[in-house]
Write a protein that binds this DNA or RNA. Sequence first.
DNA 1: GTCTATAGAAGGATAGAC
DNA 2: GTCTATCCTTCTATAGAC
Lengths: 210, 210
Amino acid sequence: MTEVEKQTEDRIFESATEVFIEKGMDGARMQDIANHAGINKALLHYYYRTKERLFEAVFEKMAKLIFSRFAPVLDENASLEDKIRFFYREHISFLQKNPRLPAFILNEINRNPARIRKLLWKFNINELWNTLEKQHHDELIRYNITRETLPQVMTSIAAISVFPFAARGIMEVLFEKSGQDFNKYLEDRKEFAAGFVIRAIKGCETGTNV
Amino acid sequence: MTEVEKQTEDRIFESATEVFIEKGMDGARMQDIANHAGINKALLHYYYRTKERLFEAVFEKMAKLIFSRFAPVLDENASLEDKIRFFYREHISFLQKNPRLPAFILNEINRNPARIRKLLWKFNINELWNTLEKQHHDELIRYNITRETLPQVMTSIAAISVFPFAARGIMEVLFEKSGQDFNKYLEDRKEFAAGFVIRAIKGCETGTNV
DNA sequence: GTCTATAGAAGGATAGAC
DNA sequence: GTCTATCCTTCTATAGAC
């Protein structure tokens, strides 16, 4: 592949990424992508054959980008509490740089869950539990986190950082109306989210159940 | 308006609701809606003139439906803790009956935030704070909830019930892969969510900050 | 009020020249 | 590899009969 080919293909891919994230698969137009890349429609088909294939390429790249952000936290050598703090700092910072990504990914998966199935084939919640238990055996017991409640805990953790971006359209309107700053809220949220979750699971400590 | 007119108009509206929620504004086809209602396309335009108007009617109805569910909790005469428990029982039960609603509403707002602006014109976060302070003055102080942290708390509460539905496509795949039941998870979540949030804010009690 | 038929525009995809 | 021109389908919307 020549340098020029690479340049064009990359420019198409980047343009497609922007347009698809902005408009979604159904709302995006090949003409928009071509215009954005400074080329004509025919060239899009030359490189990617169909809109569907171009979309799949973009979707897969973005999905991997966002999901890969969840993994590294497990590699850290730290307490569960510190991992939670680390996760929110990293994850919210990442989403601040890619604020439209969660809504895009969630929506396209809901429209067609098959898209995510092949990307998650190697993920297993039981393996996740085994990994966590190896690293945090005592803490899990102390915080009363079991194999059964793990999904509840994990989805609550994810919800707290992802939701403000998934609901960005509403949040920005509400903040604007009350004269508050959404970016300030997100900055604060890195700390707040960690504290919120840690208190929630520490309240579970054996003998102190609510 | 005759009875027959009402019947047809209602059938169109209900069909449009299903198709728009299923496919979204951009993915929906007037032909699908007509087929679903057992009529022809021309009749859709007779009643609603354009696809855009038909969509706006559906969107407004559904948005009001979902947002109106947040208000009644404030009318209850109960402690903050009990209101949280009440909210999750009611809200998650409602979403179980309308599982695609959150993704639909959030996505269409993100595509075009103007849609929600006119529906939220009378909502004011400062008024919400005033109401809460009147009803729960002592508890707010005890739990260290201030006018500044209120958005953090409220969005966390909403996130925990809404996220599983907004991310329904992923969740169902993950649960299926690990042989778990999404409906069981949702049933359990009514209790879990309340406990999680209550512990998170109680951990904030003056003198017990983490 | 409801239908058939069709206008008119837009969008995805391809042929063929260079 | 890139372009112009165009095909063909699909979709919204309307005209006009009943």
